[in-house]
Amino acid sequence: MMAATDTLAAPPRAATRPTPAIRRRRRPGIGNVVWGVVAWLVGILFFFPVLWMVLSSFKTEAAAYTNVPQFVFSPTLAEYRHVFSSGVGSYFLNSAIATVVSVVAVLLLGTPAAFALSLRPIKKTSDALFFFLSTKMLPIVAAIIPLFVAAEAVHMLDNVWTLVILYTAMNLPIAVWMMRSFLLEVPSELLEAAEMDGARLWRSLREVILPVVSPGLAATALICAIFAWNEFFFAVNITAARAATVPVFLVGFISSQGLYWAQLAAAATIATLPVVLAGWVAQRQLVRGLSFGAIK
């Protein structure tokens, strides 16, 4: 502690005393236990609302509506039965189609684009990237009216394929960014070999580069799937009974059922579960994807 005051002023690299082991060893101990407890408390605090939603979904309505929160109760599956009997299946199907097809389309369109942008000598690379990301920043609400009018004109309102097109366009910019950053990690000899042999570009893309970048593709697919599954704005504005997705079901469930919290909690838990499970399983891919590949 006595040394602390005078060395603080000096730049850190002026440290020359080579006694690393002694001080490092002293750290782990009581301090780490305390911080570990703090971390656990904060983690539980952040998780609590989700836990509460899941707990409430196993309660009866009477038990869910109490002034004093109840942690001990006799669980029931009645609310889940009610949700499943209300026809959530078709909404799940719509969500699954919109998510899976749009993610496949994003990968098919985005991979070649990211490949083109990751070749070094291309001019205007940053302009193209800039353009792609800037489309993501534009307020989607300003585009919804023409999209609505256009979809109506070609009789594609309340059609799940309209959602597929919109979700593909919505996710493509970030996907191109992510995949380009993953491709930049590929050894440049591999890319140049693929580039030189123009006629066999597709083959080398498939056989040489794809295996190297497939973890990145998985990360990209995961992020795009999360955004597509959770998307609400397009879904609520251009779908009705036929093509509505899970988020729209959840909102519709509120207005038709009134405020029955246990039931809503069951519906919300079902709606949320796929993405939460996927995110838990693929945490590392999540981080890589969310940071646009800036983080390995």
Partner: peptide, 23 residues
């Protein structure tokens, strides 16, 4: 703890808003 902490980000925004409004 990390898994607990990332969960709010994964919850469907509509469901999260409903959860906060209601519960």
């Amino acid at each position: 703890v990390r898994t607990l902490l990332i969960t709010p980000f994964l919850v469907m925004p509509v469901a999260a808003a409903l959860l906060w409004k209601t519960a």
